[in-house]
Design a binder for these strands. Structure first.
Length: 218
DNA sequence: AGTGGGGTTAATT
DNA sequence: AATTAACCCCACT
């Protein structure tokens, strides 16, 4: 899998050039992922163009193809368990000016209870964007559940490790919640292997408020 | 008004 | 540092 290489993309140069494999380095991936969030507001073609501008040697089409590949992987991650491929980190502690990324954020607002209006802007929780969540899944896939620090540092660069951990907590809570709802303990839950966390949430028909759970056999 | 989702912070290991 | 629990705001119903 690994979206960075899934389905090798080929760059077909006009007439005289031979096909050249498009390869994505780790650094390029990071730039790509960051740009994805930065330009998440534009869902048109400009997006690919803007992202490509940050990646010397990459065309907007390369970027779009890369994104497609990413979505494909995510779909698999999401609709199955999160399985960690055996490839782990690779020394990617390059000099990424993470200083200019991550914002000072994290202003408290609820804790103590002293609500001063003139205090530092109480930043209310900023909702995760879809892109950030996708990146979160990528990070999960790459570093595994628990390594929030790496995920924050290398993948979801717009969130601090604490935020990532928090997001993960809610994410898993929801996962199990949905799972439970779907399966009112049935004899079929018994499996030979050590159980599990599998069973793709049959997509949600819910979302609309009411879904009936049949709590009686039919 | 009650509930629950989704975010942050505090406490614990 | 990571996990767990408490807490808070807000959109819905």
């Amino acid at each position: 899998m690994m979206y960075n290489n899934s389905g090798n993309q080929w760059m077909l140069m006009g007439n005289s050039e031979a096909a050249v494999p498009v390869v994505w380095s780790r650094q390029e991936d990071k730039v790509f992922e960051k740009a994805l969030v930065d330009f998440s507001d534009q869902m048109d073609e400009n997006r690919w163009h803007n992202i490509a501008d940050r990646l010397p040697g990459k065309t907007p089409d390369d970027v779009r193809a890369h994104y497609e590949a990413l979505l494909h992987d995510l779909h698999e991650i999401d609709s199955g368990r999160v399985e960690l491929p055996s490839y782990f980190d690779d020394s990617e502690s390059f000099e990424w000016n993470q200083a200019e990324q991550r914002r000072p954020g994290q202003i408290s607002f609820g804790s103590g209870g002293h609500r001063t209006k003139n205090e530092v802007e109480r930043k209310k929780g900023t909702p995760w964007t879809e892109e950030e969540h996708r990146l979160f899944l990528v990070g999960l896939n790459r570093y595994g559940k628990g390594d929030w620090r790496s995920i924050s540092r290398n993948v979801v660069v717009t969130r601090t490790p604490t935020q990532v951990a928090s997001h993960a907590q809610k994410y898993y809570l929801r996962q199990t919640a949905v799972k439970k709802e779907r399966k009112r303990s049935s004899i079929h839950d018994i499996t030979t292997a050590m159980d599990s966390v599998t069973v793709p949430p049959p997509v949600n028909l819910p979302d609309q408020g009411g879904f009936q759970n049949f709590n009686f056999p039919m």
